[in-house]
Design a protein around this nucleic acid. Sequence first.
DNA 1: CTGAAAGCGCTTACAG
DNA 2: CTGAAAGCGCTTACAG
Lengths: 343, 343
Amino acid sequence: MEPLPGSGGAARIADVAARAGVGVATVSRVLNGRANVRPATRDRVQEAIRALNYRPSSVARSLSLQRTMVVGAVLPWFTNPSAVQRVRGIVEGLSGSPYDLMVFDVESEDRQRRAFELFDRGDRADGLLVVSTLPPDAEVERIRSAGLPCILVDGVHPSLPSIAVDDAGGGETATRHLIELGHRRIAHIGDTPPEFRFDWSRDRTRGYERALERVGIEVRPEYVREGTRLLHVARGIATELLTLPDRPTAIFAASDTQAFGTLEAARALGIRVPEELSVIGFDDIEVASHVGLTTIRQPLFESGRRGAELLLRALSGRRVDVRTELLPLELIVRATTGPAPRT
Amino acid sequence: MEPLPGSGGAARIADVAARAGVGVATVSRVLNGRANVRPATRDRVQEAIRALNYRPSSVARSLSLQRTMVVGAVLPWFTNPSAVQRVRGIVEGLSGSPYDLMVFDVESEDRQRRAFELFDRGDRADGLLVVSTLPPDAEVERIRSAGLPCILVDGVHPSLPSIAVDDAGGGETATRHLIELGHRRIAHIGDTPPEFRFDWSRDRTRGYERALERVGIEVRPEYVREGTRLLHVARGIATELLTLPDRPTAIFAASDTQAFGTLEAARALGIRVPEELSVIGFDDIEVASHVGLTTIRQPLFESGRRGAELLLRALSGRRVDVRTELLPLELIVRATTGPAPRT
DNA sequence: CTGAAAGCGCTTACAG
DNA sequence: CTGAAAGCGCTTACAG
């Protein structure tokens, strides 16, 4: 009811103690639900807490306890529609635990550096989930020496536990699907990973090449392009591919977003899908099903959930092996792939 | 080169001081780039920092300085495709400032409560951006008494500065567009806001009603539905509307996501857009242009950028008025609206 | 230019 | 059951 002490800031534990006529230790006990406090005392303290609208400083608490009860997630989620699903999985995996999640976006190398500066000492968060990006070796070293549990999701590092998929295998499956439909002129739009990012796309490209080689189809350099994951960039690349003298009858895009760009390019050129052109993506993000896109589904939600699970395991002091856990990929055939046109 | 002291944790300032043969105050001075340190001493300290791979504890720093150099953003971004654009704007607005951004997702009331518990004392973040959600009055009170600068984006509260749009006006513009195309049977799919969320959609509904009333079209209760923002929910509602005996020739959806659900329902029913049905959304999220959706554009990116700008202003101690800054809305006519079918 | 000491707001042995 | 005191790892007057 009465105004807060010193209009300045929030009440501190000492204010509560003073008002309740007890020591700070007792207030702390009440705050933390310890049993050994006389009911009458407890009541008085709680009354003071209410009157002062008191809430303990989590920073002071963190410093004293040497833990924060928050888990940090570092990921490039702006440019990554699949990131949202992954974070959903993380939230799901963390639900029921006492940990809160704070997300830090890393779009540029500079932002990535700052993210790790913030987290790697382990005093902002008790554990770290690094998603779709790869920490520099120096950071990994610091994280380890700080004893900060860290799990990689959608990335691989020799000294960190990780959740990933077999990208090369997925790329191969996608390409084989096209081959089985009778396609021979199959192009590929890869994804340029930024320096600091895990190099998954190149693996998908490797799978593409492998599939072609297996059946003796020559890999034509003019059919293999690469660009950032942005839709309009992919549209530009697809337009080039589709105006080639000997244009491909099928395109494997390294991500659904790029597949959408490819579909737009085809539409703009009046090329019918799948009659004249088959398109397959990778990821199976939410909109893929609405658009009827054939794609390679990777368990995005599950990757986050499982990452959180491993992190909680590590946080509870149990052992987590430094190994890569591979999640299954699945070919989802929808409306954008069909038999190769007869020439 | 040598192993860290006590394999346990990271080096502390005292370890650095010891190794450099100076006091901790001197290390602190070097750390913070103060001028008054003898070059030779500085070098020795820096050498020790490097050798120990030392990084100061930001928690200890925060407690001592009473500020964190981080800005918190609280928003329901999983279910909100427009949230990503807004956060991009925030990041842009913060770039060049010394503040880092941490994002906290609030999908449920429980998560919202925890978010505010984490932030409202002002010791996790120096400032708060609350986006597309409304803090309970008790929280607003605590935030104010903690002296924590807080800006609302896409929400309005009597005692907080805010950035918003004229939702009723936007709803009216959308509906008037349909009226001007000759539509009379115009339905509306509203968005059920969770308890804790800003009630923007109802305003859009109000604008819809106002537009109809202005031209003397009766508001038919069976034409006004409401559901959560999920695409498949909107699809269900649209299916009901489109199978009504006297089905509407136009639908105004309170968000682009719901407009997409409406488009899917129409496609499934074999109803051609825009020949037989006009659809208009709200937001102009990224995919809207790819799909050719007519919509009311609101400056998502700009709302975040401007919110960050106001927050920085407040953080620098300058005055920020408690008022709502309205951002402009714009009708974007694309391919999903057309003249009403002749009956 | 530099160091010893107090203080930021908590928690937790330790001693009553 | 309860309080005085030390400690978490920094910063910053204050005194040399």
